[in-house]
């Protein structure tokens, strides 16, 4: 197991066991090797079992923590490891370039695609540069520009979603972040190329939806997709952000629940311990998923693609007639 720098609260007992194993290995000498090895394997077994137990009973708020884990693979990690190459294209042609929402040409196993997604920073410095993955209107307008270009050259679009939400800032409002998101929702409904969306971390409300109008929407197992952050919800409903775990339970933000409600179409499995505990495994799973979907959609007509996407979102909602 890779030891992680950031240990989540609920992972501490598991981590303690691994620490013990490390200590024991240091102590082991020729004399007591046999005995200690036996102990080590017992503890290892115990640790694995505990990990399995913890991960099969995760509370929604714990999944939120995994989705936001500082070591979780980010958009550009997937670009690097799942795609052959990447040519980033900048700017919305009106105001500026958004570093939180990026996109460009890429090849997926030789097939040209347009990859678009929110990029968080892997460090504090990079997070400041990436605005913590919170896009401004320019990001959404750039995304739409690139999507329309993809349509022009008949290239499939793949969006990777990972954002706490659109940036709630002064300039963001002045330049119409709501209009920018709305425009994407409207125009993505009419694009005649396949759109495949994957929630890889945080699917934060309208800021996520603004690039997630996919023919197919998948979710990594320990990612979340929510109308509002659990903290925000708790602050509004109970005036106490501390009740975010209650909000996380209520909001139905975890992949299993969303699959059940048909908000997402597929869950991409993650190893126990989350995507960051075995990155290569996750990249491989994502690759398999994209390959499968691209193959399927290669047979679709333009009309069918548009109709399928419309029907997909048209059918979501629960009510009494």
């Amino acid at each position: 197991m890779e030891t992680n720098k950031y240990i989540l609260e609920f992972e501490k007992p598991i981590n303690d066991l691994y620490k013990k194993i490390d200590e024991l290995s240091i102590l082991s000498s020729d004399k007591n090797k046999k005995e200690l090895n036996l102990d080590i394997s017992i503890i290892k077994d115990k640790a694995e079992k505990l990990r399995e137990k913890v991960y099969s009973n995760l509370e929604p708020i714990q999944i939120v923590q995994i989705a936001r884990h500082p070591e979780r693979p980010l958009m550009l990690d997937y670009v690097k490891n799942v795609f052959d190459d990447f040519l980033e294209l900048h700017g919305d042609r009106y105001f500026g370039d958004d570093t939180a929402l990026i996109g460009g040409f890429s090849n997926f196993e030789g097939q040209p695609v347009m990859v678009i997604g929110q990029q968080k920073g892997a460090s504090t410095k990079m997070n400041l540069y990436r605005n913590f993955g919170m896009p401004q209107p320019e990001g959404y307008r750039k995304a739409l520009r690139l999507m329309k270009m993809a349509e022009k050259f008949n290239i499939p679009i793949i969006t990777l979603v990972d954002t706490p939400g659109a940036y709630p800032g002064l300039g963001s409002e002045e330049r119409g972040v709501a209009e920018a998101i709305a425009h994407n929702l409207q125009d993505m409904a009419g694009l005649s190329v396949p759109i495949i969306s994957i929630i890889i971390g945080e699917g934060g409300s309208g800021g996520a939806l603004g690039i997630a109008i996919g023919n197919k929407v998948a979710m990594l197992k320990y990612s979340i997709y929510s109308v509002i952050t659990p903290e925000g919800c708790a602050a509004i409903l109970w005036r106490d952000a501390g009740l975010s775990s209650v909000a996380a339970d209520s909001l139905g933000i975890i992949s299993e629940k969303l699959l059940e409600m048909k908000v997402v179409d597929e869950i991409i499995e993650e190893p126990l311990g989350g995507a960051h505990s075995d990155r290569q495994k996750v990249y491989k799973k994502v690759k398999i998923f994209i390959k499968k979907e691209l193959k399927r959609y290669s047979k679709y007509s333009k009309e069918k693609l548009i109709q399928e996407r419309y029907d997909r979102f048209r059918s979501i909602g629960e009510y009494y007639e």
């Binding site: 939806l209 109008i213 929510s226 109308v227 909001l251 139905g252 409600m261 909602g317």
Partner: peptide, 9 residues
Amino acid sequence: GVLSLMQMA
């Protein structure tokens, strides 16, 4: 929850 979000789309 997210059902409301989908109404935007």
